[in-house]
């Protein structure tokens, strides 16, 4: 089971790979679209990469609810539990 810290770290790596944002800027209160240069297509990439990394399923309908990094981290922690 992954902790919030581990998931944030893993997510930061994914966002860095996909959007080029430095890992330490991927903070819990940042918005993917407004703060991290992750557009809607890149968000799909982030989600699919996170599914693979954390061995979770994130249905398309739930992706809309993931506005901030915290939303995603909480979702993944819960789904992986």
């Amino acid at each position: 089971m992954a902790s919030q810290e581990q998931v944030l770290e893993g997510l930061a790596d994914i966002v860095n790979e996909i959007a080029g944002v430095p890992q330490d800027e991927v903070e819990l209160d940042k918005s993917f679209i407004d703060d991290l240069d992750v557009d809607s297509l890149s968000m799909v990439e982030v989600v699919v990469a996170a599914e693979e990394k954390f061995e979770v399923k994130i249905p398309d309908d739930d992706v809309k609810g993931l506005k901030t990094v915290r939303d995603a981290v909480d979702y993944i922690v819960k789904a992986a539990a």
């Binding site: 297509l41 890149s42 799909v44 990439e45 699919v48 599914e51 693979e52």
Partner: peptide
């Protein structure tokens, strides 16, 4: 199919 990238078409 889930892993086919969303940027494939563009």
């Amino acid at each position: 199919p889930r892993r086919v990238g969303p940027l494939t078409v563009p």
